[in-house]
């Protein structure tokens, strides 16, 4: 079986194309994946010429237009990359580009799986607890920004897609699911959440934990946290910001006073561990679930390491045939034949 082909939108993200090229270049040296860099070919060729890479594993696909949040037009790098995947010339798409443009490009080139009304962008968040046969130290949160709002039915679909991902990728046979709520009590909850709760409770192969609040996410009691796009995006951004602030404060203190420096040096091991656990670049990217192809979105601020890891996540999702697994999970149960007599 040939290694999967990963199409990288080389022009998407704050540090594109330099960091995307560096990340893909590193991936070409660390894996046997076939890589297609989509973007401004002269620019990408020049960057590749200055970067250690294995040219046997990298091809460049020229897309003359650069990306913009509104332009999911043909000939932009993102649209071209999505088209390569949709046409089967690549197996997965990785982008650090704008979420809205990504969604537009995917909607125009790929198909939503039967039973999916809205695709959901997932994010992984590092947690205290580990899960699945692989001891993965993160929860999956979805949706984190693909949609503004979600109905109860959408949230149920997100739960089904999220648990399938957790089951296949983390090898977690019975994922624990929670719905993110305000914590103000059932009478104040959004009707969509209550509607979804009633349905998720009835799902087989899923342990439903009930409603959860934002501060419980890092504890990791839930493997899959379901929420609507805006809430998910705000929650994940805030959680990332807290750790960053702790580390920034520690760095500031380290520079300020000798006594603080000594104290911080003593707990440096713990701080490194905290940084490692909460380092989103370590996880690379998270999937956009619901399409018939593998789509991985890396953070807009991604540097080379995050892009390399996003490529690895994409390869894993391809190897485990995530879209197919989700499609099977969403398929209505076949009617059982009852013998007459």
């Amino acid at each position: 079986m040939p290694p999967p082909t990963i199409a990288f939108d080389a022009m998407g993200g704050e540090f594109a194309p330099t960091e995307i090229v560096r990340g893909a270049a590193r991936l070409s040296l660390e894996s046997d994946l076939d890589i297609i860099l989509v973007g401004d070919a002269p620019k990408l060729s020049a960057l590749l010429g200055e970067t250690r890479h294995n040219a046997e594993r990298i091809a460049v696909h020229h897309a003359p237009r650069s990306d913009s949040p509104t332009a999911s037009l043909p000939s932009t790098s993102l649209f071209e990359a999505a088209s390569l995947v949709a046409e089967g010339r690549a197996d997965a798409l990785v982008t650090a580009g704008d979420t809205g443009a990504l969604l537009h490009a995917c909607l125009r080139t790929m198909r939503l799986l039967p039973g999916v009304e809205k695709a959901a962008l997932a994010a992984v968040y590092p947690t205290e607890l580990r899960r699945g046969a692989k001891d993965d130290p993160f929860s999956l949160i979805l949706d984190v920004g693909a949609n503004h709002e979600a109905t109860g039915e959408d949230l149920l679909t997100f739960a089904l897609m999220g648990t399938t991902y957790a089951r296949v990728i983390s090898r977690n046979p019975v994922p624990r699911v929670a719905l993110l709520s305000s914590g103000a009590g059932a009478e104040w909850e959004h009707p969509a959440i209550l509607e979804a709760e009633a349905e998720i409770r009835r799902l087989p192969d899923v342990e439903y934990l009930g409603l959860t609040e934002g501060h419980l996410i890092p504890k990791g009691s839930a493997d899959v946290i379901v929420t609507s796009g805006i809430v998910g995006a705000v929650a994940t951004r805030m959680l990332e910001g807290v750790t960053q602030t702790v580390l920034d404060l520690a760095r500031y203190a380290y520079q300020e006073r000798l006594s603080w420096r000594l104290g911080l040096t003593m707990v440096a091991g713990f701080l490194r561990q905290l940084k490692r656990l909460t380092d989103w670049e370590e996880y690379g990217g998270a999937p956009l679930l619901g399409f018939d192809k593998v789509v991985i979105r890396a953070d807009r601020r991604s540097h080379a390491r995050a892009i390399t890891n996003a490529g690895k996540v994409a390869a894993k999702a391809v190897a485990h045939q995530i879209p197919r697994a989700i499609a099977e999970r969403l398929a209505p149960p076949e009617p059982q034949l009852v013998a007459e007599g």
């Binding site: 076939d34 060729s45 590749l48 040219a55 046997e56 990298i58």
Partner: peptide, 17 residues
């Protein structure tokens, strides 16, 4: 163990350079 794709990529690299 060279694949067709790796040979084709090698040729594309020559063209790009």
């Amino acid at each position: 163990g060279y694949s067709l794709v790796s040979l084709a990529n090698s040729f594309q690299d020559l063209v790009r350079r």
